[in-house]
């Protein structure tokens, strides 16, 4: 058990070392969420001056963008941590070592959590100091919303890692683009009732849909709907199970095809 934790710790340490010696990586983590938040915060201010809806809930766009970044950074945190091994041609060393696939998965999840906390945490602090927007003031439910979003990000990130093991760095595009395919469907900035009717059932399969819907209800009506949170949790459980299973399957497939050393070359 101690060795199990030590191996995971080693992989997390590997990413912490990377941040320590590569400041551009840390700045990049903070830069985009911060910029996004500032842009939408000014947009919010403008809309609040010209629209009654936004006057009532001026923080909704800032919340939307911070929550979206939580989801995006959660996914990117997993995939980029894994891609680092491919970029550095280190996957062969890891595959030969006693590190088990499930330990690799757990280390990727913790690395993602650290990356997300740095990136979104920075944007959250900036939102507080620059625009007086306080996420904790919206209650524990909001924290649970954030946890759900990051878990969904992990699920998707692990599925993309499975593709990376199978197809190598040629699947790298998915790391950056996959979530943007989901963005219009999960109603980050608008209710999904705006979507064509035939598309709405697809939205209902995405945990983030319930989270963004729940967030808007909190802002506009002051209501925290537990059922939305529970639905998101339920689908997320299925998604994280699928994400982990896909990565384990892909690892096992790579063992049959000899991709673990090949992908590193």
């Amino acid at each position: 058990m101690i060795l199990f934790i030590r191996r995971i710790y080693a992989m997390i340490l590997r990413h912490i070392y990377l941040f320590m010696v590569s400041w551009p990586r840390v700045l990049e983590l903070i830069y985009w969420p911060f910029l996004n938040m500032v842009l939408w915060a000014f947009m919010s201010k403008f809309l609040a001056q010209n629209s009654n809806i936004f006057l009532l809930a001026s923080g909704v766009l800032i919340a939307s963008v911070i929550m979206w970044d939580t989801l995006f950074r959660g996914q990117l945190g997993v995939t980029l941590s894994f891609i680092e091994e491919l970029w550095s041609r280190n996957l062969g060393n890891i595959a030969v070592s006693p590190l088990k696939p499930i330990e690799l998965i757990l280390s990727l999840i913790v690395a993602s959590l650290i990356r997300t906390l740095i990136g979104v945490g920075g944007a959250g602090l900036a939102a507080y100091f620059l625009f007086d927007f306080q996420i904790p003031s919206y209650g524990l439910g909001f924290i649970l919303f954030f946890i759900n979003l990051i878990v969904m990000g992990w699920s998707l990130g692990l599925a993309i890692c499975a593709l990376l093991i199978r197809f190598g760095l040629s699947a790298e595009t998915f790391a950056w683009a996959a979530l943007f395919f989901i963005q219009p469907l999960c109603g980050v900035f608008y209710p999904i009732s705006i979507l064509p009717e035939w598309l709405q059932p697809v939205s209902m399969l995405i945990p983030a849909t319930y989270i963004f819907e729940g967030m808007r209800l909190t802002f506009f009506e002051g209501v925290f709907q537990v059922d939305l949170l529970l639905k998101a949790c339920f689908i997320n459980l299925i998604y994280i199970f699928i994400g982990i299973s896909l990565l384990l399957y892909s690892y096992s497939f790579a063992k049959k095809k000899g991709l673990l050393l090949g992908n590193a070359e």
Binding site: R6, A10, Y17, L18, S22, N90, G92
Partner: peptide, 25 residues
């Protein structure tokens, strides 16, 4: 050991050896 499978370039030698030392317990 193989010259075709490398250690992370950005990490120092000490950091790499520390990481793998922990992985191998």
């Amino acid at each position: 050991a193989s010259p075709f499978v490398e250690l992370p370039h950005k990490l120092t030698v000490l950091q790499n050896l520390t990481v793998f030392g922990h992985i191998y317990g």
